[in-house]
């Protein structure tokens, strides 16, 4: 019974987090820290820092990763399920309701004008996020090389209308990272062998 209460509580807190965060993962992390670390001690400060690093390093939406991890730590599989559902349900309902009226809404001239302005703003937001990500990036020579090559390939292929899925950039760059690391290990071993 206690466990059930725990899971229900996780669900309700996650629902609140899902309902009150704007702008995705990073905004949500602040609220998760407030609810789970400061108010309730579900995660220690150290565990929270680990959780953020893991959520950023695994595929998928950061908020979902964070919710699943935190929920599991607190109450196992059903805790993870409750937290993830809680984070998703408010967005799902809100967006679904909007989608019902969106086309009708867009048929007004003034709304179309507003959205044309908004489109330019979204370009700014994407660019801004890209620059912010770049600033946070650890700048190793290898990393800079991967970045420049990916940027050049993707932009040029895109502008020349060549089909090439972005999935490959992720797979190739991940493999390249592993290859460089392994090559470094082998090189170090050969060096040691010579001495």
């Amino acid at each position: 019974m206690d466990k059930f209460k725990d899971i229900l509580k996780l669900f309700l807190i996650s629902l609140k987090i899902g309902l009150f965060t704007f702008g995705g993962g990073y905004g949500m992390l602040a609220l998760i820290e407030h609810e789970f670390t400061e108010k309730r001690n579900y995660l220690s400060a150290e565990e929270f820092a680990d959780m953020v690093a893991i959520a950023e390093s695994t595929p998928g939406p950061i908020a979902i990763n964070a919710a699943t991890y935190t929920g599991y730590k607190r109450a196992g599989f059903f805790g993870a399920l409750a937290a993830t559902l809680g984070v998703c349900i408010p967005s799902f309902i809100i967006i679904f309701v909007i989608s019902l009226f969106f086309n009708a809404f867009l048929s007004y001239k003034i709304v179309q004008y507003a959205f044309r302005g908004v489109q330019a703003c979204v370009i700014f937001l994407i660019l801004y996020t890209g620059v912010k990500t770049f600033i946070k990036l650890k700048k190793t020579p290898f990393g800079i090389a991967v970045m420049c090559v990916t940027f050049a390939c993707m932009t040029l292929l895109g502008l020349f209308a060549v089909d090439f899925s972005s999935v490959f950039y992720i797979l190739i760059s991940g493999a390249a990272g592993l290859f460089v690391y392994l090559a470094g290990l082998v090189a170090a071993r050969i060096k040691r062998g010579k001495k």
Partner: peptide, 30 residues
């Protein structure tokens, strides 16, 4: 904590800069 594995860190060391480039490139393409 998967980040304690050197291999995971190495893979992410390749993916992170690529994702940064993908975001910037998408902004340009759009």
């Amino acid at each position: 904590n998967i980040l304690k594995y050197a291999g995971v860190k190495a893979v992410l060391g390749g993916i992170r800069p690529a994702v940064t480039a993908m975001i910037l490139s998408t902004a340009v393409l759009m």
